[in-house]
Write a protein that binds this DNA or RNA. Structure first.
Length: 879
DNA sequence: ACAAGCACGC
DNA sequence: GACGTACGTGCTTGTA
């Protein structure tokens, strides 16, 4: 049998594994996902490919010989996340256990090591296979060298041979470097020729073979723009070619004979698997060494007592408390048990023991008993479902973690504890399994897990509070987010009544109209197809009906609404498709979707507001999302007729802030003109139009106001010139001109924008009025796009985040006021800048005053806050 | 189970 | 025909 050499691009595969897998960690809190992914791949290679020679090559360090050619090589790259870099030493240990050679070489990259050894192997007549996710390596392909390219994830690879490459890209292996030289590579910061992408590069190479010949004949290129760019960036192109060319003659100190692979020692490998917690991989190892006494977990022991009888003595007045559920939706999920940790011990309380106990209820409902929890709102709501009104929550680890750094997207107890430097808790997934396999484990496992989690809350409270104190955010948690959690919990528990009959009736009407339109579209198309499938629709529009292609997506033709709108008038199928889309959305998301989440027992919708998710401090809403119920188009707005008060004779009352973000901007920026505009209570879009177009109020056309509105919108949401150009259907240059003129008109805003970016660069973060924080590490990136995005975020987050702070303050004050006034009125929903309540008729007049004054006075700014309100028999009518 | 494409709100 | 473009949630298709 022929000898087989496998060369693995270590960095590339580790990166892929890291991003493809969830952030797993073992019982000691060490992250293991990249190692796990890497190892499964190794096992598969060893089993399936049976290599005789094997090597894993790594990149050496920061600088390489390529940096001499180009200082900016790989510039602007995001730093390797620490969660990944900490896995590399362990990965090397793993390779040692497998007795697999691994190698790195100062000043050279893994690519060069692989290239050099691939050529050597080829010369010795070995069958060579390179494994990587980096397309640059395709240049090594030959009759004897194949390259396996990981696709999404790790389990799938494309095996590139010369013929496969020809089939895919229609070029030869040696042309890869010419292609890359023309295209550039933004991830490695290789410039290439701007405006040339894969398609153009290949077209050029088909005609001219290589870069040198292309430039010898550049004069004959007819496309003017393209030729100009090629000529202007000739140097870049040749330098890029040099950069992407793999050095196949690197000064390596190892030879092929060092790479011989003779199998691994099962014992060593299984030891390291156990250390890393790779239970599932243990039985994939050959050899006699197996240890079937279930693997002991060497987390420090934890002693959790199961409580079967609750007495007052169980409580000390300060305890960590946890409600354990397997389903995210705490309105529906059953409770598996409660965790309780105090200075006396760690306890697990079975559900019935707790809720049938008077002592438990007394403890929970007494505000003097302080509770430290994870996700206060979940605790509040799940106990409300059991008739218990828990009070005295003075710390929430989830909310604290989100305030400390909202960009962390994992706020599980294990993830937080890892960040705060504590170990000793499992991920839910490790204990419960995932997907369809998720289930409640045996009691002792459950008890231990709940005990560990609750203990972690107990342990981490101080550390988290110290961090908050450092950031001056203690008040933000205690006075804003925690009280808000209680209010949101009550809103969710109260729920919103929906008129199901009305929804069903609307659904039936829609169904008929959809069917009619579908038939008409099929007739116009001359065939039946699935209207909901862009994949099927694309070819019909752009091939069969020959409509002009405006935009393509990765997988085919774009058929999005803005594209279809541009095709209006070209074919009578277009308006029908747009109507079908509009009605189909209503039917699936808002009629069927809402009906699906109505609770049987209450006939109401009980959303969940996520208080610890967004980067700016806004809330979000799920199951259902009550923050995106249609309003713009009349057809969709009718959905709101199904949202009605829950009691006879009551009304829906809705109040919204007028232009709160722009008012906040006026305040923060201290811009005189903008402040004046709001003091005079002017129509802000008209005012902006006057400033931007230098005309008097009377001369403003509808179109000017529309454009000014889009610019204001852009300022509020931090969109780019590109974003503005899209929303106005103008060029990017024109959009940029609008932005410039806006900033000329409001010089205070310009100064603010400049200063906040500088400030963010210096501090690394921006803050809101209430000291909410958002870190912007990419603001110093050398990558233009990343940096620009961070800059816009720096400008926008204080505006949007402060607006979010203000409405939260208003909700807290309103809740207090409603109680003081002994009103039955109650809040039901929050939609970023508006509050929706329900109230008995006799309270409406009072509410007009109370709600608007509480909202307007939530905070003192140097511009007035303005609130509009309305009420009606349904949400639709409250307009 | 997951990605892609699309569409709704602020 | 470039690369990526405010924030979210949730639907349907299509492939694994």
């Amino acid at each position: 049998m022929k000898n087989k050499l496998i060369l693995i691009d270590g960095n590339s595969i580790a990166y892929r594994a890291f991003f493809a897998l969830p952030l797993l960690s073992n019982d000691k809190g060490v992250y293991t996902n990249a190692i796990y992914g890497f190892t499964t791949m190794l096992l598969r290679i060893i089993e399936d490919e049976k290599p005789t020679h094997l090597l894993v090559a790594f990149d050496a360090g920061k600088t390489t010989f390529r940096h001499k050619t180009y200082k900016e090589y790989k510039g602007g790259r995001q730093k390797t996340p620490s969660e990944l870099s900490e896995q590399f030493p362990l990965l090397r240990e793993m390779l040692d256990a497998f007795q697999i050679s691994h190698y790195q070489l100062d000043q050279f990259e893994a690519d060069d090591i692989i290239g050099t050894l691939a050529r050597k192997g080829e010369n010795e007549d070995l069958e060579v296979n390179v494994i990587s996710g980096d397309k640059d390596l395709l240049q090594l392909i030959s009759d004897k060298v194949t390259v396996s390219m990981t696709k999404k994830g790790l389990s799938e690879v494309d095996k590139y041979t010369p013929s496969f490459l020809d089939e895919k890209l229609e070029i030869r292996p040696d042309q890869i470097i010419d292609m890359k030289a023309l295209m550039g590579d933004s991830s490695d910061n290789i410039p290439g020729v701007p405006g040339v992408g894969e398609k153009t590069a290949i077209k050029l190479l088909k005609q001219y073979e290589n870069l040198e010949n292309l430039y010898d004949n550049v004069e004959e290129i007819s496309a003017k723009k393209l030729k100009e760019k090629l000529v202007n960036h000739k140097e870049d192109a040749f330098m890029s070619k040099e950069l992407v060319t793999i050095n196949c003659d690197s000064p390596i100190e190892i030879s092929l004979s060092d790479l011989t692979y003779q199998g691994y020692q099962a014992q060593k490998v299984s030891e390291i698997f156990k250390e890393l917690g790779f239970q599932s991989l243990l039985n994939r190892i050959d050899g006699e060494y197996t240890d079937d006494s279930s693997v002991p977990i060497d987390l420090p022991e934890i002693d959790v007592t199961i409580v079967n009888d609750i007495t007052k003595e169980l409580f000390t007045g300060v305890e960590a408390f946890e409600v354990e559920m397997l389903d995210e939706n705490y309105h529906l999920s059953s409770i598996e048990g409660f965790g309780l940790v105090n200075k006396q011990g760690k306890y697990f309380i079975p559900v019935n023991v707790a809720i049938e106990s008077d002592a438990f209820k007394e403890w929970a409902e007494n505000t003097n008993n302080k509770k430290w929890v994870f996700d206060a709102k979940k605790v509040i709501v799940s106990l409300l479902h059991k008739g218990i009104h828990i009070k005295g929550i003075e710390f929430d680890l989830l909310l604290a973690s989100h305030l400390i750094d909202p960009s962390e997207n994992n706020h599980d107890i294990p993830a937080i504890s890892h960040r705060l430097g504590q170990k000793g808790v499992f991920f839910d997934e490790e204990v419960y399994g995932k997907g369809a396999k998720r289930k409640v484990p045996e009691l002792d496992k459950l008890v231990e897990h709940v005990g560990r989690k609750t203990n972690m809350i107990y342990q981490l409270k101080e550390t988290a509070e110290e961090k908050l104190k450092e950031n001056e955010q203690s008040e933000l948690l205690k006075e804003l987010e925690l009280p808000l959690a209680l209010i949101l919990g009550e809103m969710e528990f109260t729920g919103v009544y929906v008129d199901q009959k009305r929804l069903e009736k609307m659904g039936e009407d829609l169904q008929e109209r959809l069917k009619t339109i579908e038939k008409e579209v099929h007739e116009l198309a001359g065939e039946t197809f699935n209207l909901n499938s862009p994949k099927q629709l694309g070819p019909i529009l752009f091939e069969k009906l020959s409509l002009p292609v405006i935009k393509k997506t990765k997988t085919g033709y774009s058929t999005s609404a803005d594209i279809l709108e541009q095709l209006q008038g070209k074919h009578e199928i277009i308006p029908k498709l747009l109507m079908y889309r509009q009605l189909g959305k209503l039917q699936s998301t808002y009629i069927e979707g809402l009906l699906r989440v109505v609770h049987e027992d209450t006939n109401k919708i009980h959303t969940r507001f996520n208080q610890a998710l967004t980067q700016t401090g806004r809330l979000s809403s799920t199951e259902p999302n009550l923050q995106n119920i249609p309003i713009r188009l009349e057809e969709g707005k009718k959905i709101r007729q199904a949202f009605t008060p829950s009691k006879e004779g009551w009304f829906i009352f809705a109040a919204d802030y007028s232009q709160i973000e722009l008012r906040v901007l006026a305040h923060i920026a201290g811009d005189e003109k903008l402040i004046e505009a709001f003091n005079d209570d002017m129509d802000i879009h008209t005012r902006t139009a006057m400033e931007v177009f230098h005309v008097e109020a009377g001369e403003i056309t509808d179109n000017m106001r529309r454009q000014a509105k889009a610019v204001n919108f852009g300022i509020v949401y931090g969109i780019s010139d590109y974003g503005l150009s899209q929303s106005l259907g103008i060029t990017r240059k024109e959009a940029q001109k609008f932005i410039d003129r806006y900033l000329d008109s409001y010089p205070g805003v310009r100064t603010y924008m400049e200063e906040i970016v500088q400030d963010a660069k210096q501090k690394g973060y921006v803050t809101t009025i209430m000291k909410r924080r958002r870190y912007l590490p990419e603001i110093t990136s050398r990558n233009f796009n990343r940096r620009s995005f961070a800059e816009r975020t720096a400008m926008n987050t204080p505006i949007q985040g402060s607006a979010a702070d203000i409405i939260k303050l208003a909700m807290i004050n309103l809740s207090i006021k409603l109680k003081e006034e002994n009103l039955q009125a109650r809040m039901l929903m929050q939609v970023h800048d508006e509050l929706i309540l329900e109230a008995p008729e006799e309270e409406i007049d009072l509410l007009k005053d109370i709600v608007s004054s509480v909202m307007e006075n939530a905070i003192e700014l140097n511009v007035p806050l303005k609130v509009d309100y309305a009420f009606g028999k349904t949400w639709y009518d409250a307009k």
